[in-house]
Design a protein around this nucleic acid. Sequence first.
DNA 1: GAGCACTGC
Length: 760
Amino acid sequence: MSYNPYTKAHPVSKSLPSDPSEKNPLYGFLPRKVTAKQVQTAMESDINPFTKKPHSPQYKKILEARKKLPVFGQMDEFLKMFTNNQIIVMVGETGSGKTTQIPQFVCYSDLPHTKGQMVACTQPRRVAAMSVAKRVADEMDVQLGKEVGYSIRFEDMTEPGTTFMKYMTDGMLLREAMNDPDLKRYSTIILDEAHERTLATDILMGLIKDLAKRRSDLKVVIMSATLDAQKFQKYFSIAGPSQPAPLFKVPGRTHPVEVFYTQEPEPDYVEAAIRTVLMIHRAEEPGDILLFLTGEEEIEDSCRKIKLEADDLVNQDPDSVGPLVCIPLYSSLPPQQQQRIFDSAPPPRTADGPPGRKVVVSTNIAETSLTIDGIVYVVDPGFSKQKVYNPRIRVESLLVSPISKASAQQRAGRAGRTRPGKCFRLYTEKDFMTELEEQTHPEILRSNLANTVLELAKLGVKDLVHFDYVDAPAPETLMRALELLNYLAALDDDGNLTPLGAIMADFPLDPQMAKMLIVSPEFNCSNEILTIVAMLSVPNVWLRPPNQRKEADQAKAMLTVPDGDHLTLMNVFNSYMNNKHDRQWCWNNYLSQRALQQAENVRMQLQRTMERYEIELVSTQDERRLWQNIRKALVCGFFMQVAHKEGEKNNYLTVKDNQVVSLHPSCGLETTPEWVIFNEFVLTTKPYIRTVTEVRPEWLLEYAPAYFDPSTFTDGETKRALLRVQKKRSLKSGDGGASNGRNSPASDLPAKKKKKIGTS
DNA sequence: GAGCACTGC
């Protein structure tokens, strides 16, 4: 083993110790004062500067390819800016190489391994974190998981003490910040794809801006698309209001895309889209097409229509129209079918016939998450499904809305990745200029923030309303979140995090679910609640193929527990386990094995967190009692999501919000009980409540007395029903009703259980 | 009597 002059105990502040430069390519490097010339010499060395081992044969080959990236030519400029500034905003267009190269430049200058620290680079998506880490490990000629690693949920590919370059999801870094608010293990933090404005990135920006003031040794790089750079420069002007963070700009390496607009607005964008695809197929040069639509049904429908019409064209004119394949793409497709987008276009039908063409019909997944090479034509109708949150009725829903200019630009760019392309926008140029918003609203303005507010509290943010957000959420949204967390006893009346809230924040769950999981040992059903919570955390497990709906519904009925959908979910998971994860069993029962497998993963992760807090895993033998206990535990988390049946038409009214809702058709209840608890409120063709279980009104009064205090209700059937129950209860017990206090037993730590474990 | 844009912990 070669001599390593660096030790972790002593931060290097001066030039590194003397060592012949042939043996130590980093000889003479002054941390954060490194020049491009030094880095380039070190890169050309036969010895890997970080492992001190000889470079592998392919290293130089990869290096030659890296040198052709636009960002490589600006290494000197970047390093100077990195030396002279604490925070840099960087703009790098597609193909600039920023995600792979900038973190490496930072490593060469920052030398995190000499200080026992790391450089972090966040990504909004897991696959990106993994694949970029792999690429960079290859470029740096190290084994993935050693010097270069990644960290995503369920998978930590890093080695403490060895890894100094870590790619990770933004959510993962946020989690780490909850346990170490100063993020001391990082010398530089790079937030990549900041323009995507995910919830996690937005919160991280606020935290890191503040952290940079406390930690003068921390360096920060914000990487974004062009349009947002100014906003971030201004936001990160920590040196003074008139001193925006410096901008480092790198051109992209893409091909020009010619953009076309329609002359008149299109009344039916799906019809127009299909027409445009067929027009391209008839009249344009060979090259694949990408069409953006809004959802699964629309996509499957359009694929069928395009296929029919294209076959017609081929039959009418086989000498000039080639074969066409139409491939749907959306996230709920099984991975194997998603892979089809990488198939090549069909060959000509005869040796000298017209060439074939591939059409991918996709949701927004192809805008950011997946890149398809070989796309030359993009058809952009200008719509996508977007999440909107209405704090007044506390409902998140999906709405087909016009996209932003930034989004339209991103879509068009998909046509120019391999050669010059064309983008057909199915709206007028005037509408593009005047009607489309510049940017898509960041997620923080469109979401229920219950989770986020709890995280912020755990992160030590005292004043949530005046936190330095890049874009501040609506006060009403924050109030809704604070209210919920206060009712759940995660925050006290002054908005301070309670000990219970601190534990809740550690579970990667919605606060309601975290709460019911933590109190579940008191009802002797934590084993079951853990399963239910895991099942609620994964995508729908029920498959319902269009041509086998009846069979699928029958299979589902076999697994249904009539007392409630939550119990049905538990039953499905247990049956899956009893059938030893059998694929055939899943298939026979129209269940998604992928989702069930995911639920098992989530369950194991949550169980580890439970163990850390010594929350017991217990169960009840008698099934009837067990089911009742489970329903009581559900009330402790979801008492704010209760609906009361009103009138004879099977309509329900949500408690307090007084929204008229119906049971979702997927609901498995055999009757329509007077009181139900629901997991979600969905607004589709009409307002529905989904995943519903019957509860008893006495439980509402007992486990959430503050929320169900009848005096806080407006007059109506719900209030009268509550008063009747209250009266009956007080006659029975002789006291006022609630047995032990305001929010008990769900109000505080499960002290009894903790002690029991502590002594064992 | 109907759906599930997309991520992330």
